[in-house]
Design a binder for these strands. Structure first.
Lengths: 151, 151
DNA sequence: CCCGTGTTGTTGATGTTTCAACATTCCGAG
DNA sequence: CTCGGAATGTTGAAACATCAACAACACGGG
């Protein structure tokens, strides 16, 4: 396989170096803020947030995994951890005996509500404070083009 | 502390959901390709790549950490692992007795050269194939605005 | 010279992710 | 109905990351 690889040109190379830095630094920064202030890793926060935005504060495991962008295995371990803190519980799925449904508990909702303001402030401080409305439009155009290939 | 938090408006909320997905999926996809095809995690690849782009294929640990966007601790563990594979070696820094300098070995360079084409192809497939030159310009403008706050 | 402070890098414990293997259930073809 | 493949979740081990604590050195002011 693999004939001569098509390398990146100067434009692309520069863009990639910057983007790679952001892919490394931005999640790390969000993670650090959440852990320091609330003890919740960013990936776990996303699980709670996704559940809280769903009908009945509950979601099928596989749907949740797709929406958060994680693997079944990772989600399963994460739910274990969140369940031990009392923030989540598993219930059997009524329509599919294989299925499990993750339910956000009241305690979990409280924890999320406590964490949300600080997290949003950090997102604002690191991202939106630096972008104009035009930047936002361009950014959405780019993400819209990239997301399909990632799913 | 913390007066009423300033939440995200509709524009920002949508942009953030998309961006968060990309922050989750893109590193995971890059990592998977590299691991499957070469056994190198993405974070380790970046270390090798950064070294290979440097004068003398070597860098001070602290400089390397800054350039790759990682913590001293993470880098130290990573270098341990890369050293065991024979791809890297530590040498004492001549001008600062605390310092360590990471040197890319010939074997390491070979490994990097073997991994590079597949990785670049994946970056192209997931990112640059979907973007026009205008998109690239906009993207660079955005990353340029975000990076300072992340350092 | 000497002490205090900041820098550099490592270590080990703990937490999280990945990977491979697996059990269970669904579903469609025959 | 029944079989085989696909989908859903879980598990345990290994790899990787984070955190706190630490050791060793640099550097500047007294």
């Amino acid at each position: 396989m693999s004939t001569a690889p098509r390398w990146l040109d100067e434009q692309e190379r520069g863009a990639w170096l910057d983007l790679a830095q952001i892919l490394m630094l931005l999640p790390a920064a969000l993670d650090r803020q959440l852990r320091e202030d609330t003890g919740i890793p960013h990936a776990y926060y996303q699980i709670l947030a996704t559940l809280s935005a769903s009908d009945g504060n509950c979601l099928r495991m596989s749907d949740l995994a797709r929406m958060v962008g994680t693997t079944p295995s990772r989600l399963s371990h994460a739910v274990d951890s969140l369940q031990q803190r009392g923030w989540l519980e598993r219930r059997a799925c009524p329509t599919d005996k294989r299925g499990q449904v993750a339910h956000l508990t009241d305690t979990g909702l409280d924890a999320l509500r406590a964490a949300a303001p600080g997290h949003v402030a950090e997102v604002r401080r690191l991202v939106f404070d630096h972008l104009t409305p035009d930047d936002l439009t361009h950014l959405r155009a780019v993400t819209a083009k990239l997301l399909p290939a990632l799913h």
